[in-house]
Design a protein around this nucleic acid. Sequence first.
DNA 1: TTGACATATAATCATTTACTTATATTATAA
DNA 2: TTATAATATAAGTAAATGATTATATGTCAA
Lengths: 119, 119
Amino acid sequence: MKTMEEIPIEKAAPILKLLGDKTRLTMTALLMEGECCVCEFTEIFEMSQPSISQHLRKLRDAGVVLEERRGQWVFYSLNIENELYSLVESLVEQLPSQKGKLDSLEENGSRVVWCDIQR
Amino acid sequence: MKTMEEIPIEKAAPILKLLGDKTRLTMTALLMEGECCVCEFTEIFEMSQPSISQHLRKLRDAGVVLEERRGQWVFYSLNIENELYSLVESLVEQLPSQKGKLDSLEENGSRVVWCDIQR
DNA sequence: TTGACATATAATCATTTACTTATATTATAA
DNA sequence: TTATAATATAAGTAAATGATTATATGTCAA
């Protein structure tokens, strides 16, 4: 078993605080399934689009997620290069899979998949 | 390896928020070394006694710690019966040991150990 | 009982947070 | 170009947070 890096409390606490919000924790768990675009989050959460955008910004500022613009869409993904990724991963592992939420989008026709768009 | 219980996001987020405070996270890590009394926390943290008391209350209200009065002292310990203990444990495991802080108290003569008191 | 010590509670306050609506930016398509 | 779609930023606001000081409670020992 890989031994984990020790994380100083000064770094761990802000990440826990960041993920200690239901919306951001769910977003992070969703991203464990793969990248998502902003419009998917706005479908999933009952919340205004700016609110979604602000949560994603916080996650990005903390280095938890990466953002990448592709055309008019912006896709977010987990930043596995982040020095605190192991902490994030060990947390999300203990949560129920959020795959169902993405499947609902799919049925809904509102899942945005990049390779589909390009055709 | 023991498989972990899945924790609903509605329960996980508030705990992460609770531990997303430097003081409370350090308290929790300290308690991994064994029980501590309030006066030890007030020695360790540069903070007023009521503030310490309020942090401990939040941890207690969330079921993370247990409190037990013994004479004029009140001792706190991790609540290993808590349904979210595995989450707490997996977090604190990734933090540096806080034993040094307790050792300093010891040198200082301000460590409070119950079996010493009873003599 | 009285005083001292350990801890908790109450009241207050400045800061942070998470949301909202309104508006700006950016990219595509007609 | 101009309209539209996707996203971000700005500004405002109510509620939550984490600290403080002042005070109350509880225990022990003289």
